[in-house]
């Protein structure tokens, strides 16, 4: 097993940072999902309990948190698809670096579009 905690094995450049990013976003999404299933389960308690908790998600400050969460998911998703292409597509290993720039470009475009829509709804200007 690798001893990543000692850190010295790694000489990577983009490849290493995209791997670190993929790992961190994976854990963050997982922790969110645990809480998310718990808050959704309040629909079995009462409409009032569910609505009260959902009201906290509509706070503009929470909208920034939601945007950060979506940023993590969109990165993990696009980079995950890149990893799958590296494994299954014949030319994958040859173009993995170019594909990483593709991932980042798609990520920026998606997040700009998402943020404009989500934040304008959340900050009440729609």
């Amino acid at each position: 097993m690798s001893k990543a905690s000692s850190g010295t094995l790694y000489r990577g450049r983009e490849g290493m940072w995209s791997w670190v990013g993929h790992r961190i976003t994976g854990v963050v999404i997982f922790l969110f999902l645990l809480v998310h299933v718990l808050d959704t389960s309040l629909v079995r308690v009462s409409p009032g309990a569910y609505d009260a908790v959902m009201a906290t998600y509509k706070n503009p400050l929470m909208a920034l948190g939601e945007t950060a969460l979506v940023a993590a998911i969109v990165f993990h998703a696009f980079n995950g698809l890149r990893l799958i292409l590296v494994d299954f597509w014949k030319q994958g290993t040859k173009y993995h670096r170019q594909m990483l720039w593709g991932v980042l470009a798609l990520w920026v475009v998606t997040m700009v579009a998402f943020s404009i829509r989500h934040l304008s709804i959340a900050f009440g200007g729609h």
């Binding site: 409409p47 569910y50 609505d51 959902m54 509509k58 829509r117 709804i121 959340a122 729609h126």
Partner: peptide, 8 residues
């Protein structure tokens, strides 16, 4: 209405 529409 996005997030503002989510309730029971």
């Amino acid at each position: 209405d996005g997030i503002t529409a989510i309730d029971f």
